[in-house]
């Protein structure tokens, strides 16, 4: 464990909690892409199947359980409890255009052609593009609630910190995982546009609004 991975995980946890609290407190999921949340639930489900088969550490197990529970709770709030506030008209990204390439890539490019390994690879590739429906929805509505931008900031920051974690592990531990690094780079690059808007607008107290 290193400082980048720890702060990365805490940033990820913060993002997940911020979103859950936003929906719960405002009793509304306006501006939130349910499709992205379903994809994240799928990412955690396919990545943490080893939750019961291999014990790495208490921290690892506890965090995995929290991520999975929060992911499904968020999906439930969006499509169940607060369905009336779900903005389906703007959440129209065609997720099959993500799932099909990701499945093909996971089957073709992986560390080992074994079920658990392919599921993990699928989860890594899917996570790198899972935010696209959310970013697409914001570009369609032309704006985002400030709390939603904080959610996105911490979510983007987490994988950015993981990139530093992988540099650290390569340098100090000789570890290198090309699949995780490349997917993590793609994931972080997708946030660049948002990071720019977040830093130049939201941090200056303005509302995040895109030139529609």
């Amino acid at each position: 464990m290193n400082i980048f991975r720890l702060t990365g995980d805490l940033s990820h946890l913060a993002a997940i909690i911020i979103l859950l609290l936003k929906i719960w407190k405002t009793r509304s999921c306006a501006g939130i892409s349910g499709k992205s949340q379903i994809l994240f639930a799928l990412v955690f489900t396919t990545r943490y199947l080893d939750l019961f088969s291999s014990f790495i550490s208490l921290y690892n197990t506890v965090m995995k359980v929290i991520y999975i529970m929060c992911a499904y709770a968020t999906v439930y709030l969006i499509y169940g409890k607060f369905k009336a506030t779900y903005d389906g008209n703007h959440d129209t990204f065609r997720v099959e255009f993500l799932l099909i390439p990701v499945v093909l890539l996971a089957v073709l490019i992986n560390h080992a052609f074994a079920p658990m390994e392919i599921l993990w690879t699928f989860s890594i590739y899917l996570e790198s593009v899972a935010i696209l429906p959310q970013l697409f929805m914001i570009s369609k509505t032309g704006e985002a609630e400030t709390i939603t931008t904080h959610y996105l900031f911490f979510l983007g920051l987490y994988r950015t910190l993981y990139l530093f974690n992988w540099i650290w592990r390569f340098y100090f531990e000789g570890f290198f995982d090309l699949i995780a690094v490349v997917a993590g780079l793609v994931q972080t690059i997708l946030y660049c546009d948002f990071f720019y808007l977040y830093i130049t607008k939201v941090l200056k107290g303005k509302k995040l609004s895109l030139p529609a």
Binding site: N110, H111, L178
Partner: peptide, 10 residues
């Protein structure tokens, strides 16, 4: 593509 080294990561 080498061995997956990030088994302990979330």
């Amino acid at each position: 593509l080498g061995q997956r080294s990030t088994k302990d990561e979330l």
